[in-house]
Design a binder for these strands. Structure first.
Lengths: 197, 197, 197, 197
DNA sequence: CATGAATGAGACTTCATTCAT
DNA sequence: TATGAATGAAGTCTCATTCAT
């Protein structure tokens, strides 16, 4: 109970992130998580009712933080371009800080339309909707063009970022530090400025 | 052996599409595919060495058609905006024609970084690269702005389309006919024109 | 498919009888049944959805035969004393013919008020009720005394037989052939004649 | 250590009665008992070496009281019919006073030929034997007929009472007060007088 | 080609018991 | 005494794959 005592629940969650990222949710075993965490098999079930609940917990913990970040960007009265940049920046920093966790969230949840994506579709949509509201407001303010549906624009924005993360995930390589900053700029430039032509 | 005889291999593949789309690759059983196809359990193994091979076949069949379509767009000497529209149109028409198949490809392969995505990463990248070459050529021709990396632009383009498909997939509803056409236009408009701001 | 082919489902059921009788339902493992039957583990689940379903099947198979025998006794127009003797005889012969099966039915089902007894209470009651009807009819006919509740008399009759079986089961020894016949007589004598006093 | 202090061991035993009665010995968990008792998980193991030991304790506590009651009936010089009635009365009153405890003893021990019944078969038989001695003595005194084996008569007597309890247990309903008295009479009437016919 | 019974490794989950505090 | 986290063996069930017919 001392402050120094390790929080085994946290240890298990962190181990699960590494294992899910490395092997994937469906391909790993609960014993892999226990081994990675350095705890006994049964302790995983002392803290979580099932393997699925571990992934749910990881997703919800992080996604709620992201929803808060998006909400904060939405509330701020900065120009819409900077609001979008703040969101892109938050997601990309999340990846920089813990690529395994973001890999798990993207690969095992937000893109898993048959399993966890379906479970958490409401939460996922909340993010899209908030982004869409930022776009819609900018359209009403005459800052963004109005002939593109705001929900569609939100899909473009979020889809681009997720594709970037997917690219990094597939590469399997550490991302150079400067690329993170560069991509933030390019995301906004792409969405707001377009390619021309 | 007669020409009129049903091609059981094809029947199995088509059944697998429906089953994978409905239940997901990891959650369905080989017997589900056999049942859906109306064939005996063991016959699946007469035509395919494993459950994975069925998905591989489905993916490669369709992806090669798509690579050909992209190559054709690349070869044509139409303006880059129209080349991109042709590609977007092809993918969206693919979904319109067989949403289950596209769902399987997107959900179970191109977004499955731990399993089939890894297996087919080379094929997947070929599409991105071809799109990137179209962008790069347009940049050399001065049609597209050059301060955005062509590979990044390709991610934006492909990521947007995949996000649109994902949205349709998650919705679980049939897409209104007019939306298909509308989206083709919006994709190109979004990528080329941007939102402004 | 030939007539000579062993019916593996039957083999598994028969093996389960021996294993349940020897080790008890809760204490045996499905693998024990498979081993006893000489089949692979998974085959048990090819024929039965669960371990419980095996016991259910064994019980229902036998109990339905017994209900038929009781119904036949009830339908006959022999004196009630002989009707009761026919029923006692049938149950005791069932034990003589396959003591393991009767042990399983008595120990794991009809006396298991928290598990299978509850599941099959309806079927079990059908037997008691049929016996009660025989007694009630005899009371209406003035053959049996009427100041004892017919349902209570049925409990006495069935409870006595089950107690005899339980005694044999607990003893763990083979029952001498002559004891079977003797007991049939004593059961009826006890129920109809009483001890006196 | 004060006299007013609750006896936690007793609290655990009483809780175990309720849990065993409700869920059955095999289907309940030790933590269920701890929860029902309102004590910590590990405390159960402070007082009892195992889950089985709890049931053993419950059974032996009560069964020894019953053996004493039977012995007292046996020692008394009342007519055998009244001796039997005293025993029936004791068992039925035991059920009236604590139906959960009697349910546990009957269902989990005296009828569990593969598990606890086997463990306690000696104790169980002592009861049957004592009843048999009462019958045998009555036969020697010429009060009971002698052509029925005394051990068999004991089985009939005890089997009838246990069947009545089983019936009440299966019904799951509270037993009307007058039924207790009525049954005591009917048991003796049935065993001594029989149905006639 | 076609069938579906047969195989058995493997995974999740449960839970009695131990033990550090 | 009292707590409840920690342990890990054991068991049920699943299902991809094989194979005899």
């Amino acid at each position: 109970m001392s402050a120094a005592a390790v929080d085994k629940r946290r240890v298990i969650l962190d181990a699960a992130v590494r294992v899910f990222a490395r092997q994937g949710f469906h391909t790993c075993r609960v014993s892999d998580i226990a081994d990675e965490a350095g705890v006994a098999y049964g302790l995983v079930y002392h803290y979580f009712p099932s393997k699925e609940a571990i992934l749910d917990t990881l997703f919800l913990e992080r996604w709620d933080v992201m929803l808060a970040a998006i909400a904060e960007a939405e509330r701020s009265d900065r120009p819409p371009r900077e609001q979008l940049r703040a969101i892109a920046s938050f997601i990309i920093e999340s990846y920089r800080h813990d690529p395994d966790l973001m890999k798990v969230i993207v690969v095992e949840v937000t893109r898993a339309a048959n399993t966890f994506g379906r479970t958490h579709v409401g939460k996922i949509m909340q993010a899209h909707e908030a982004i869409g509201r930022i776009v819609a407001q900018a359209q009403r303010d005459g800052v963004f063009r109005s002939d593109i549906d705001s929900a569609f624009a939100a899909q473009a924005f979020y889809g681009l970022i997720e594709q970037v993360l997917t690219h990094w995930i597939f590469s399997g390589l550490p991302v150079p530090a400067e690329e993170f900053e560069h991509v933030k700029t390019e995301v906004v430039e792409m969405i707001c400025g377009g390619l021309g032509g």
